[in-house]
Amino acid sequence: MMWIIWILSWLLILTGCVFIVAGGIGLVRMPDLYTRLHAASVTDTGGAIFVMLGLFLQALFVYGSWFIAAKVMIVLFFTLITSPTASHALAKTALLSGFVPTDANGKPILDSPETAQRLARSRPEAS
């Protein structure tokens, strides 16, 4: 009976590892900051979810204590809340400082950094 748990957590953690390595490679190879943001969040969300689910199974059945499993879920909960928020804040600040995103073949999407700043401004201009 226990081997089912071990096989399941093996599969989950290996899938998490695939996500983590894929995100890491994406972080290096992506051309632009905004695409790297996507690659970094692949590791944060995909990797974290699968690895933590694997640990959840381990904690619940192998360690047999629901408290550790609850802790694993709390860590996952906070990771899934903080990392998208950080990525959003990073993209907003980059846009605010006039970093214009470019499309697939390198042509900037916005016509000028000023429009990028205007788009990213949280409050209307204090004119």
């Binding site: 953690i13 983590i20 995100g23 972080l27 290096v28 900051l33 790297r36 943001l37 970094a40 590791t43 944060d44 990797g47 974290a48 690895v51 933590m52 640990l55 694993v72 860590v75 990771t79 990392s83 950080a86 990525s87 990073l90 600040t93 980059a94 970093f99």
Partner: peptide
């Protein structure tokens, strides 16, 4: 590597933030 090479400041900050979340996973595992 991305943190060292990253052209803009935001690449470096993204790399540091991503490094931090990986450390969380590493500690748990």
């Amino acid at each position: 590597f991305r943190a060292l090479v990253g052209p803009t400041i935001f690449d470096r900050l993204l790399a540091v933030n991503s490094f931090g979340t990986k450390t969380v996973l590493l500690i748990a595992v």
